[in-house]
Amino acid sequence: MALPPEQIRALDQLRQRLSQLSQSLASARADLERSDPVPSWPTLQRDAELLVHNLNRYHETMNEHRAFLTAAHAYPLPTFPGPSQEHVLAQLMRKKLEPKAEDWIAASTKPKTRDAAQLNGLQNGDTSRDVRLDREEYRDLWKWAGATSSGIANGMMINDAFEDNYTLAEREAGVENVVTGLKRNLDDDSDDEDEDGEGDEKMQEAMPSKPAEPGVDASRPPIALETLLRFTSTGTLPPQR
């Protein structure tokens, strides 16, 4: 009658994982419901990470004891207080999932229909048909999508769109309006080849060219910092200048 200890341990482990998972779900839910204003992004992310982590551990445990768990059957002992705990008993003895859970599984495993895709804001190529996609149609879709997208990408490669300093959208809207923060003229098709040689000169050209300054002779040694500071403090320069 009694289960071997490792199986009991497996059940115990599973129970622990489930209780952790349900706890973190409950606390995340409570956070969302109660806190005002809505929790910050980092908090939500941390909650979600915790949930995923707990789900993963639950999943691992399930996988680890898969053989035992699929073979296991629940049956009530005569000592089980059936009349008073009828609800629990019914749940334990149930072989099928609850109708709610079944609906939920069906809804989330079926392929996206047009409505669902639109709800999610997805607009991929083949959503015009409002029938559910079967395996065959998926294959067609991917076959078509792969070829088409690589065709588009090839076209962009040929046009040097990837090498361009502006996106296609920016080109269409007019390059003049793009705020790059740079004053240098980027729209220069010839600068690909001579990047090394001429690049520096171009930079210098684009910089505000300084007019030759009168009274400046860069070849002369600078006067000492102290002398300069003495001048700014007292207004006099040493005579040996």
Binding site: P214, G215, D217, P221, L228, L237
Partner: peptide
């Protein structure tokens, strides 16, 4: 300003 000359003839900056 065009008539003003750098105090430091080498044109260095403080």
């Amino acid at each position: 300003l065009a008539d003003c000359r750098p105090v430091d003839p080498s044109g260095s900056y403080l």
